[in-house]
């Protein structure tokens, strides 16, 4: 299987503040890859570097075999991204936001969007400013999934979602991955990694360590966080 994401020697700092240091990561096609780590460890920096939001200091990032800077537009056409904080334009209606994302992608995904909205119980008539964080996240999921991308990147997707919607969300991911997609999932929730991920890595102090198994017990998991606090 080919690597959908390939990161070699990624380093990024914010002035004197540490971002990530010499990160190497490969995510294979068809994988659901769990990305664990305490707050501030560098998970979002890695994700935001992949998407080209941040300019890396060193290293190389390839997505679908393409350079993430030179071929950014081509890559993003096949990526569905959900940020940890789902923000949209306050005055727009949910249906307009979903259509706006589809229009920019240059396609009519109304059928798929309607299917996802129904499963996640998204009220498309409301304005964004009327929505709670959980409901904004559901809109974000629709925008990330409606075009059936080859790669999903989710940054802490389930915070703010109720348990039933969380289940529907992972059911959808499994369906898309079974149909050939790949998923990179950043999370703090150990059970999500145990239950849904096939491979996982943990970030601590800006450095990434691959885990040999996703079956991590809670004691070992919490130890990662304790070590981070001690550092």
């Amino acid at each position: 299987m080919d690597n959908v994401i390939e990161i070699r020697g990624l380093s990024k700092s914010y002035g004197k503040a540490r971002g990530v240091i010499d990160v190497n990561l490969s995510v294979k096609e068809g994988d659901i890859f769990g990305f664990l780590g305490p707050n501030g460890a560098g998970k979002s920096t890695t994700i935001r570097s992949i998407l080209g939001f941040l300019k890396k200091d060193a290293g190389e990032i390839r997505v679908f075999g393409l350079d993430n800077v030179k071929d950014r537009e081509k890559i993003l056409a096949d990526v569905g991204y959900m940020p940890s904080e789902a923000w949209f334009y306050d005055t727009m209606k949910v249906s307009d936001v979903i259509k706006y994302a589809a229009d920019i992608r240059g396609g009519d995904y109304s059928e798929e969007a309607a299917k996802i909205c129904e499963r996640l119980k998204v009220n498309t008539d409301k304005r964004i400013k009327e929505l709670s964080l959980g409901n904004r996240k559901k809109v974000s999921i629709v925008c990330a999934m409606q075009h059936k991308p080859k790669l999903f990147i989710f940054d802490e997707p389930t915070s703010g979602l109720d348990p039933l919607i969380q289940k529907h969300f992972f059911d959808l991911i499994n369906e898309y991955v079974n149909a050939g997609a790949t998923c990179l999932l950043s999370t703090h929730v150990l059970s999500e990694v145990n239950r849904y991920c096939r491979h996982a890595a943990i970030m601590r102090e800006g450095r990434l360590t691959m885990l040999d198994t996703v079956d991590i017990d809670e004691d070992r998991f919490l130890k990662f966080y304790e070590e981070e606090e001690e550092m």
Binding site: L51, V79, I104
Partner: peptide, 14 residues
């Protein structure tokens, strides 16, 4: 400032 940049720039637009 309004945190919408990530949504806009995660779409296939340079």
């Amino acid at each position: 400032e309004r945190h919408t940049g990530e949504f806009l720039l995660s779409l296939p637009l340079s």
